[in-house]
Design a protein around this nucleic acid. Structure first.
Length: 153
DNA sequence: CACGGAAAGC
DNA sequence: GCTTTCCGTG
């Protein structure tokens, strides 16, 4: 588990996505700016793990859903998930073979690991999740207009 | 299926 | 830098 401290400045509204887990009393509160794609100029485009959290947070359930363990998720419909991801990225030929290669690149970056022996099952390394910087926080020396969560190495 | 190298795309 | 594409290997 980890705790999150937020510094709220005056008159600032922050939208949150509340991610809950089926078989756990634990939950993660994600500020939307921490992982959702920004639309402002200079924005980076959405990353796959952002997209996965977005679907999981919506509880959409058909293509992907949380598993039994903390941070674990199961891809219920691999080709449908790939199609949704492909639509988001403008890649009409996306499929699970290619999407899963992108997931495997996350292993070395400590974002995900595989739940071995369980088909289509991966696990977020939430214990390595850290907050980089808060948008507009004046004392941050290297502040950028877009703040993010990152997975600590 | 799952893995990871290699190369290309953006 | 983060995939996307392709593919040989277990």
């Amino acid at each position: 588990t980890f705790s999150l401290v937020l510094l709220i400045e005056q008159n600032q509204e922050i939208s949150f996505t509340f991610l809950t887990f089926h078989h756990s009393s634990e939950a993660v509160l994600f500020p939307d700016w921490a992982y959702k794609p920004a639309w402002s100029p200079g924005s980076r485009q959405v990353q796959l793990w952002h997209f996965l959290l977005e679907l999981l947070g919506r509880g959409e359930g058909g293509a992907i859903s949380w598993g039994g363990e903390w941070g674990e998720f199961i891809i219920r419909d691999p080709e449908r998930l790939a199609r949704l991801w492909g639509e988001r990225k403008g890649k009409p030929h996306m499929n699970y073979d290619k999407l899963s290669r992108a997931l495997r690149y996350y292993y070395n970056k400590h974002i995900l690991h595989k739940t071995k022996g369980k088909r289509f099952t991966y696990k977020f390394n939430f214990s390595k999740l850290i907050l980089v910087n808060y948008p507009g926080f004046p004392s941050s020396p290297h502040r950028s207009p877009i703040s993010r969560f990152m997975f600590r190495k």
